[in-house]
Lab assay of single mutants.
Amino acid sequence: NQASVVANQLIPINTALTLVMMRSEVVTPVGIPADDIPRLVSMQVNRAVPLGTTLMPDMVKGYP
């Protein structure tokens, strides 16, 4: 099973992602692959992302 990117904390709308905000976890449904975490750094979320939420491609501005 492939690990996905999961919010490690509440991420407010328009926040630029940092490594501490994300963790990898095997979840269903599958979200953004954990391998993409380095690419996500400094990209902004377009909505508030609660703790434990799987990051989906449509939540991150400019992804992929």
Results as ranks from 00 to 15, higher is better:
Glu25Gly: 08
Pro29Lys: 05
Ile32Pro: 00
Gly31Asp: 01
Leu19Thr: 09
Gly62Gln: 06
Asn14Pro: 00
Met22Arg: 00
Leu40Tyr: 03
Pro50Gly: 11
Ala7Trp: 02
Val26Trp: 08
Val41Cys: 12
Ala34Leu: 03
Pro57Met: 06
Val26Met: 06
Pro57Ile: 06
Ser4Asn: 01
Ala34Gly: 09
Ala7Ser: 14
Thr53Gln: 11
Leu19Ala: 09
Val49His: 01
Arg23Gly: 08
Leu17Ser: 00
Asn46Cys: 13
Ile13Tyr: 08
Val26Ala: 12
Val20His: 14
Gly62Thr: 07
Ile37Ser: 04
Val30Leu: 12
Thr18Ile: 04
Glu25Pro: 00
Thr18His: 05
Asn46Val: 14
Leu51Gly: 13
Val60Pro: 02
Leu55Tyr: 00
Ile37Lys: 07
Leu17Tyr: 00
Val60Gly: 01
Val45Pro: 03
Ala3Phe: 10
Val27Gln: 04
Leu40Thr: 01
Leu17Asp: 03
Pro50Cys: 15
Thr53Asn: 09
Ser4Cys: 04
Leu55Asp: 02
Asp36Gln: 15
Thr28Leu: 07
Thr18Ser: 11
Ala48Asn: 11
Asn46Pro: 02
Thr53Ser: 13
Val6Asn: 00
Glu25Asp: 15
Lys61Cys: 13
Ala16Leu: 11
Asn46Glu: 11
Ser4Gln: 02
Ser4Lys: 01
Ala7Val: 11
Met43Gln: 10
Arg23Gln: 06
Tyr63Ala: 04
Val49Trp: 02
Thr53Phe: 08
Thr18Asn: 05
Gly31Lys: 00
Leu19Trp: 10
Ala48Thr: 13
Ser24Leu: 06
Leu10Val: 08
Val20Gly: 10
Val20Ile: 14
Ala3Cys: 15
Met22Tyr: 01
Leu40His: 01
Asn14Thr: 05
Gln44Thr: 15
Val41Asp: 03
Val27Cys: 06
Met22Val: 13
Pro64Ser: 13
Met56Lys: 09
Asn14Asp: 10
Leu51Trp: 12
Gly52Met: 04
Gln44Lys: 10
Asp58Phe: 10
Met21Phe: 04
Asp36Ala: 14
Leu40Asp: 01
Ala3His: 10
Arg47Pro: 02
Pro64Trp: 04
Asn1Lys: 05
Asn14Phe: 06
Glu25Trp: 06
Leu10Gln: 12
Leu55Gln: 01
Met56Asn: 06
Lys61Glu: 13
Met22Gln: 01
Asn14Trp: 07
Thr53Pro: 00
